[in-house]
């Protein structure tokens, strides 16, 4: 029974793979709408102008995927469950030896600590530069946010719970909400000024919204959208990594939700 099933699966897998390879090797690319994107100037970084200008609404969706994923991670680890008896049993049970938590992590050697802290400080600085210069140079909100989040993760891995670079999770939650709300509300403001959602307005009245040299003044709200995405990605990725590694907070959370349920 099982071997027959494997055979059928193998054959269909092979056919599928062959057809994908065949159609990929026959690929002809039509430049299409790219020509429009390349001949109309918004800001020097054309990728950024596609992300935050032409297809800004996709980026909004992408932000929301991250927001939802972080919310769902919180739910997985016991926030607002209707019934948390299963999780309670699981986390009250004694640990086996091979299970590593942040609490019982131990400490790395001085060499790693010596290198990790300056490296993470530099990464934070680089991340901030990447976010702020996203509209001129390669990079943008997502890349910068990911850099800062990885600096945090590096520091947490090296120092355990005594990490010098540490964000409180409530602070991160608020940071993420602020990032996402800024993006959503800037779009609404654009709707009232330009008539379309996520319209790139460059000035309110006579006041330029992004004071800059003449070539970049067309950026309008794009640098602010960059900052919003940066905040959100930094907060989202740090929260996700933090949830996957830090059990103490989860147990606290479960106890707290127990109080709410028993009230």
């Amino acid at each position: 029974m099982n071997s027959k099933r494997d055979l059928v699966a193998g054959i269909s897998f092979f056919v599928f793979g062959a057809s994908i390879l065949y159609s990929l090797s026959n690929m002809h690319v039509n430049p299409g709408v790219n020509l429009v994107y390349l001949t109309h100037y918004i800001i020097p970084n054309y990728v950024c102008s596609v992300i935050f200008g032409w297809r800004a609404y996709d980026t909004l969706g992408e932000c929301l995927v991250l927001v939802v994923a972080v919310m769902v991670s919180w739910i997985i680890f016991g926030k607002s469950l209707y019934d948390n008896t299963y999780l309670k049993e699981l986390f009250k049970a004694p640990e086996s030896d091979d299970y590593i938590t942040l609490h019982g992590w131990g400490e790395y050697t001085p060499i790693i600590k010596f290198l990790a802290f300056p490296a993470s400080v530099f990464m934070v600085a680089l991340g901030i530069v990447t976010i702020l210069g996203g509209h001129i140079t390669p990079g943008g909100g997502f890349q910068g946010g990911a850099l800062i989040a990885s600096a945090l993760i590096l520091s947490v891995v090296a120092f355990g719970s005594k990490s010098p670079l540490w964000f409180d999770h409530k602070y991160l939650e608020k940071l993420e909400a602020i990032g996402a709300l800024t993006y959503l509300l800037l779009g609404v403001v654009g709707m009232f000024i330009g008539g379309y959602y996520l319209f790139i307005f460059t000035s309110v009245g006579n006041l330029p919204i992004f004071p800059a040299p003449k070539e970049i003044v067309t950026a309008g709200i794009i640098p602010y959208l960059n900052i919003a995405v940066g905040l959100k990605v930094l907060a989202g990725l740090s929260t996700a990594a933090f949830l996957l590694s830090c059990e103490k907070v989860i147990i606290e959370r479960i106890e707290k939700s127990e109080e709410i349920l028993n009230k």
């Binding site: 790219n34 990728v47 596609v50 992300i51 297809r55 980026t59």
Partner: peptide, 9 residues
Amino acid sequence: PLTQALVLT
């Protein structure tokens, strides 16, 4: 630039 933006998303 279009596909690079899609990949970032």
